[in-house]
């Protein structure tokens, strides 16, 4: 490391102009994409319990097979017979979404549930979305992950295991019982129910 990375500065209150007015991405997976459909409603809430109406959420995720559309994800590129053989990217898959929050602090995404991707010591991670939050009042983005409550793989996930039991709940999206395929994920920036954020 020879150079020092450029400091972050807040996205400010007018980021819509450059990032979401014409370049928001609600639909991460279109109806043709393979996988279990997920309709996701996120909310961002501040330390006073007040919805944050000027945040932006970015999501980065793997496809249903657990592969990222990225040159450094080499799963399935070789035929050495490991358990990643056959993982492919279906062509329209990109895996990125971003939306600004509305007055009530909410934003929505349409996607598919990602597959399991390898993690530390090559153990498979539980299905998760990688989430970054930007806003006025945030000098740098916060990173978190969204897992799916009730997924049996959560109990063996190496990243969830780093988080104290009593705070793991904050990383779990909850299913909307009346609407199959719909999930809710609240992000609390601080307070009693503060979401676990990661130093990546």
């Amino acid at each position: 490391m020879d150079l020092v990375p450029t400091p972050s500065q807040t996205a400010g209150p007018y980021f819509h102009l450059g990032m979401t007015d014409t370049r928001s991405v609600k639909c991460i997976a279109d109806p043709q994409t393979k996988g279990e459909r997920v309709w996701l409603a996120c909310r961002v809430i501040d330390g006073d319990g007040v919805p944050v109406p000027d945040a932006m959420i970015e999501i980065w995720q793997a496809n249903a097979e657990g592969k990222y559309n990225h040159p450094d994800d080499t799963q399935g590129d070789d035929t050495t017979g490991d358990d990643t053989q056959g993982k492919t990217i279906d062509s329209p898959w990109f895996g990125f979404g971003r939306m600004p929050t509305l007055e009530d602090g909410s934003c929505e995404f349409e996607t598919i549930k990602p597959g399991r991707v390898p993690g530390p010591r090559n153990a498979l991670q539980a299905p998760h979305l990688n989430v970054a939050i930007f806003a006025r009042g945030m000098l740098k983005q916060l990173y978190t992950r969204m897992y799916f409550a009730g997924d049996p793989a959560n109990s063996e996930d190496a990243v969830l295991a780093l988080v104290p039991q009593e705070r793991r709940e904050s990383l779990l999206a909850q299913p909307v019982v009346s609407h199959p395929g719909h999930w809710r994920f609240d992000i609390h920036l601080q307070g009693e129910r503060e979401t676990v954020f990661f130093d990546v």
Binding site: D46, G47, D48, V50, V52, W60, A62, Y68, D72, D73, Q75, V117, P118, G119, P120, Q125, H128, N130, A135, R136, G137, M138, L139, L142, Y143, R145, A158, V159, L162, V163, R167, L189, Q190, G191, E194, T195, V196, F197, F198, D199, V200
Partner: peptide, 18 residues
């Protein structure tokens, strides 16, 4: 920043494909 910053320490992540 006062009401929009976490008060708990961040959890350090090993870098995975994610």
């Amino acid at each position: 920043t006062i009401r929009r910053s976490p008060t708990q320490p961040l959890t350090v992540l090993p870098h995975t494909l994610s």
